[in-house]
Design a protein around this nucleic acid. Structure first.
Lengths: 343, 343
DNA sequence: GACGCTGTTGGTAGCGCTGTCAATTGGCCA
DNA sequence: TGGCCAATTGACAGCGCTACCAACAGCGTC
């Protein structure tokens, strides 16, 4: 006997079946598709399972069925507040469903992403959520070869691998900059940190609008690959002022930077919005509370997480949504920091 | 033949073994304990695996070995910045190890926690990380019955289930309030949100110090079960001022509330620190950048995450740390918001 | 009464891997 | 040369569950 004796350890399906007086396969069916059983057996299995405290062995199930009920989530960062909200949406939407979330961190590396994708591939997830649309060629092929539905989140673009939920960072950024121009601002700075693909697209939106308005000047732009932080906002703003002392507005690629700019302005006694207008991005909680209140582009991060899981589950269960690309849009929240000069 | 034909789908261990010219079990060993193989076989299996792009099937492995390489993490919230940092530490520390993180959200419910614990139990994790020390009696028993090492994080206390990493919220809060008293402040308010067990202990620390100093007054305390937010800080502060108009200091149970108080003070033109001293909790990035800079109690959240995983892995691999309870301490960061009145 | 249908149940044979133990090899000593 | 030990390798069975098919009951139809 190569293994130790039986019937120690947790309760197995066979034991439930025996107690219920049915075959193991019938008991198995009870847990996967109770409607297929007659009422009497259903009740018997149910009470037997409860009596023994049976919990199915997911590994055995996965091995036998060649499927899992795991939704893999690839997200580039845990540091960033934004992904926090997305993850929260994802977890909330998965709750109550049969699916488990398996989250991994790509650290903003498309190669790490590819590696993790390969790992998921071997685990046959029921569905996959990946961030953004900038995957490597190999990653895209890998994903296309996988049998499960996939949602790309955070942004939308051409050629979805499968499904998409997001919004246009380009449009959102354009709207913010257009708003600043409409206020009569001419020297509108751009402050960027991390510079991941989505931030790049915000920069592109800025560039387009500024060039179209004949206001473009490279001295107005300051970016860094450094991860974002409130303190960084202040530092960057100081540097930007050095490059462009006549700045009359700043568009920050996120709210942390914007808050840092606000504090730096308080420190330097720069009047907001009189001397400088500020617009952030994401509309975190504190933007509406700051003094002065800070304008921002509201993005639906939590909803993005929720929607992606909802779509995924629908697709997994064969009810593929007809709308494969969902644009959750954005909303420009105009507050005191970008109010017209003489209201 | 009950199953579809073989050799479709991903590469299996057998195929790697065949290509390498060894038995499956030898190939298996290569992936778990390469040192046990002779150099020649090791190289042959390695190149065969690489050539075929073999990725082990974790479900089959878990089923056969009756173990997994999953570390389960039970955390009460994703909304709270604090757990963000902890999670980051956890993921960072797990990277490069063989262990996978499986994170679940208890939503601040000890019953949800118990339920999730039961779920983990059936999955035989290699280790478990649970938040805090306020588990139900059943949860504690469940954990004690599990064969894997367990770390309780976020706080330390008597009777660890197994191991612990955290700090004393009571002491940290006491230190903050003592500091405010040392400034000569007498009407020190307490602002609390969420009021989870750790926040409760901060309240207890506050109460002790205030009573000992003969400064206790119930009108100085305002708490709410509502989840925390910057905007909430302002609202609560307004209410607290209603209860105690002669307030000369506030201790906030977290930094979001403190920032909200700062903004509200700016709105009401209350001079900080002259009229009101503020101390927050956690020392998030923005506290050192705000105007004025905000005092806070620095807690080592990231390190807590890291350390818990490190200890867990050591214990899993049989090198149980002799120090089972690790106090990561805290540091009182005194800044402008609680500077002495005439410096 | 034979036939086919649907709805329910069970038998068999694995899913891909590893624990156990036995077998083999080589090296070293007496 | 024989014997012993450690290092290395392999055979076997089975982890707990489910896919696949077969079987069977109950019913209505002709």
């Amino acid at each position: 006997m190569p293994r130790k004796s039986k019937s120690i350890g947790p309760i197995r399906l066979t034991e439930v079946a025996k107690l219920a007086g049915v075959s193991p396969i019938t008991a198995s069916r009870f847990f996967r598709n109770p409607e297929a059983l007659s009422l009497s057996k259903r009740e018997r299995v149910e009470s037997a399972a409860k009596e023994l405290g049976y919990v199915p062995n997911l590994h055995a199930r996965a091995l036998a069925s060649q499927r899992t009920e795991v939704i893999g989530v690839l997200i580039p960062s845990l540091t960033n507040n934004v992904f926090n909200d997305v993850l929260r949406g994802i977890y909330d939407a998965s709750e109550g469903s049969r699916y488990t979330i398996q989250f991994v961190n790509t650290r903003y590396s498309i190669f790490q992403e590819e590696k993790l994708l390969r790992l998921f591939q071997a685990q046959k997830p029921a569905g996959l959520i990946v961030t953004g649309i900038n995957q490597t060629e190999d990653s895209r092929n890998l994903m296309k070869g996988m049998a499960c539905p996939i949602v790309q989140i955070m942004e939308i673009g051409p050629e979805p691998v499968d499904m998409m939920v997001g919004f246009s960072h380009y449009d959102a950024s354009s709207a913010a900059v257009t708003h600043l121009i409409s206020l009569g601002r001419k020297r509108i700075g751009f402050l960027g940190a991390r510079m991941d693909p989505r931030v790049q697209r915000r920069l592109e939106g800025y560039l387009k609008v500024m060039k179209d308005a004949g206001l473009f000047d490279p001295a107005l732009i300051l970016t860094t690959p450094t991860p974002t932080a409130v303190s960084l906002g202040g530092t960057l703003f100081g540097d930007l002022l050095g490059q462009a002392p006549d700045l009359d507005a700043v568009f920050c690629v996120n709210d942390d930077l914007a808050l840092g700019v606000l504090f730096e302005c308080q420190r330097r006694a720069i009047a907001i919005p009189e001397k400088l207008a500020i617009v952030g991005f994401n509309d975190l909680d504190f933007m509406a509370t700051a003094v002065p209140t800070l304008s921002s582009v509201r993005t639906n991060r939590y909803e993005m997480g929720r929607e992606s899981v909802t779509m995924l589950i629908e697709a997994i269960e064969g009810r593929r949504p007809e709308k494969c690309v969902v644009d959750l849009g954005f909303e420009l929240m105009i507050r005191q920091s970008s109010a017209p000069r003489r209201a």
